[in-house]
Structure formats: structure tokens, C-alpha cells
Design a protein around this nucleic acid. Structure first.
Lengths: 196, 196
DNA sequence: GCCAGAAAAGCACGATCGTTCTATTGTCGA
DNA sequence: TCGACAATAGAACGATCGTGCTTTTCTGGC
């Protein structure tokens, strides 16, 4: 790995932390340069445009997310256990990885009404993520942990909503019951999709 | 009503629409002046600072939200019916009022990690909103529509999560099944809290 | 240890940001 | 209808934004 790639990685680490707090638009090149101890132009040369910086920061987050959350989950036993693992790993990702919480939540709201490359990248990421949840939910169906007629996409929708609700309750409202509420809600989703 | 108040109201209408699409930070005085056909300084004189513009825009949204969603709901029959009314009215607010959807969702994510008056105002609004949901849920308990040991705050958390999930699915992902998923999820929340 | 090429810094640009000050225009009661 | 005062516009400010150009510094293969 060349020197350039190394500092580029360090920049993206910092960019990720900063963007999770102030968003991808609030992520400014001047501040990022100051925070990394570089000059504006030296830092800028790595990306050649702000949009590229944003896109690469998002890609950086995607790689980290897949490595720490998605891939390990897919290595656990199929079925309800895997669905639980996915949810618990997302909770860890939300609370332990970045100072501002899940950066996909931030980005999704920021770009939901603004066209461009960032919007498209976020849509692709979130569709992939929903597909992942739905696929894992489907294994729970085929393993017999959930009802045969349970709709994996409905389950995915509800879990995604729960994720957003947890982010909201912890980040904005600082609600100390958020974790309990979230786990209760998760059990309720499972109960409802389970054979009774 | 004086002339100043009238134009100030017109400005806030425009500011609300703009902020719902680009956020409260993306809401810029120059753009807002251009969109309303005023001069920057003429518009600015109404608010004396950007933070005041943001706060008054938020207050404008709050008044509209209470008028169209909260107050009419509280005039409907107590119990499960009222809870349904609240949810359906929120859906209408989300889809029909502002071009970028519910502005409290946008603002909540935007300011969840940034201290200041806007953060505090949004926290207060969202706590009030959760209290409203919980109170309505409690009427459903006392009316016997929900289990006596159902937790109104848990129900409020789940409905708030559902709200965020619906915004996400419609605004970002343009998912045409979002409304079905949301209504199904709402029924699931009720089922789970209902006497069986 | 030299030297080509990569990496970083320095500096400046036009644009736009929020904000202030002063001048002009509009409103409305006496 | 005049005159006080509210409402709006004009012009400019310092700061910061993203970005380009040029120069300096560093790095790694020979």
C-alpha cells in the first residue's frame, strides 16, 4: 500500500466520524483538513471534488459496515438465530462505531429529496440492506422458525423502521429506555411472524 | 394583522417547503429571498438571525401540525379509533403537506448531534409528540381496546419508529408498497397490544 | 545517494454565506 | 394629506465555501 492510499484511508476515517455528526453536506473540506492536520489543497488532491469525497466516504462506511455487521452475521446458524444476530450487530454498529451513530441513517434523510450521485448511491445501499434483512428473514421461514406465509419484505420493513426508531430515540432524545423498547419491538416483530 | 406579519407568514410558508427538501441548514437566506421575490436584507430584517429564521420556521410547522393532525384527532372517539385516526392523519401530513415530507423527521436527524436552540426545540417537539401518542394509546387501554398491561410508551415508540420507516421507504426508496407495509405494521402493533 | 514521480503545501480565484448599515419606499392614523 | 414609522431595498463587509495552478517536499526504486 502506497503512502497516498494510507493517508487517504486516514482522511476517510476522519471524514466518516465527522460526517456522522454533521452530515455529508456539513462535512467541509476546510474543517476536514484542519482535523487531519493537512492543507486544504493537499487533502483536496486526493478526491478532486467534494462529491467524490462524499462518495468515497460513503463507500468507506459501506466496507466497514459489511465487514463488522453483515458478513459475520451470514456466518452464524441459519434461521431466527441469524436474524437476531443481524439485529444485535446493527445495534453494536449504531452505538459503538461512529460518534454520530449510523451514517446511513443520516445520509438517507439528507439526500432523500436531492438528486445526484449521493442519492443514487444511498438508494442502492439501502436497497441492498433491505434485501439482506429480507433474505435472512426468509431463512427463518425456511428453517421453520417463522410462519410459512410470513412476508420477509414486511419483516424487513419493520426491522428497518425499528432501526430508525432506535437511532431517533438514542441520538436525538437520549432516551435511556430506547434499548429496552427496541428489543421489545424486535421480539414483537418475531412473535407476530412466528407460528403460534 | 399588519403588513409585516402577512409577508412574514408568506416567507415562513416558503421556508417550510424549502426546508422540508433541503433541511434547515440547507435553507439559505439568499435562496429564500430569491424564491419569495424579496431582497436578502428585506427578508433578513424579519428574523435578525438565521437561527431565528430556523426556529420560527419550526414553530410554523408545529402550529400547522397541531392544527391539521393533533387537534382534530383529539376530537374523535377515545380508544383504538382515536389511535387509528392519529396514525392516518400523520400519514396525510407526511404525504400531502410538504414537498419533502414531514419536516420534523428531517430536522430530528439534522440536529440530533449538534447542540443549540434548534436541537433543544426539536427535542421538546418530539417529546411532546411521543407524549401525545402515548396518551392516546393509554385511552385505548382504559377503553379496554388494548390489554390493561400494555405499555403506552412502548406503543408510542413503535409507532414513532413506524413513522420514520414510512418516511424512509417513500421519500428515499420510492417504494410503492410502503403504504401497505406501514398499515400492516400498524395492525401488528395493535394486535400485539390487544387482548387476545 | 540520486532522481523521477508522487504527495503535500501555498496561494489565489469567484461564489455564496450570514450580517450590518444606510437609504428608499410604503402604510396608515391623525 | 401629511407625517411618523414600519417595511423593504441597496450595497458592502469579512468569512468560508469548493476548486485550480504552481511550487515545494517527500518517497522509493535504481
Amino acid at each position: 500500500m502506497t503512502k497516498g492510499d494510507e493517508t487517504r484511508g486516514a482522511i476517510l476515517d476522519e471524514a466518516l466520524a465527522l460526517a456522522s455528526r454533521v452530515g455529508f453536506t456539513g462535512l467541509t473540506i476546510g474543517q476536514l483538513a484542519e482535523q487531519t492536520g493537512m492543507s486544504k489543497s493537499g487533502l483536496f488532491a486526493h478526491f478532486r471534488s467534494k462529491e467524490q469525497l462524499q462518495l468515497q466516504t460513503l463507500a468507506h462506511a459501506r466496507h466497514r459496515f459489511i465487514d463488522t455487521t453483515v458478513r459475520p452475521t451470514l456466518a452464524t446458524p441459519r434461521g431466527e438465530k441469524r436474524l437476531r444476530e443481524l439485529f444485535e450487530r446493527w445495534l453494536a454498529w449504531e452505538t459503538e462505531t461512529l460518534p454520530g451513530g449510523c451514517i446511513f441513517v443520516t445520509g438517507s434523510i439528507e439526500f432523500d429529496d436531492q438528486p445526484g450521485a449521493m442519492h443514487d448511491a444511498l438508494v442502492a445501499d439501502q436497497r441492498d440492506w433491505l434485501d439482506t434483512i429480507a433474505t435472512v428473514a426468509e431463512t427463518a421461514v425456511t428453517e421453520g422458525d417463522l410462519r410459512p406465509d410470513a412476508d420477509p419484505r414486511q419483516v424487513a420493513f419493520e426491522i428497518q423502521a425499528l432501526i430508525l426508531g432506535f437511532h431517533h430515540a438514542t441520538r436525538l432524545l437520549d432516551d435511556e429506555r430506547a434499548l429496552d423498547h427496541a428489543r421489545n419491538a424486535f421480539e414483537a416483530i418475531l412473535d407476530h411472524a412466528r407460528a403460534h
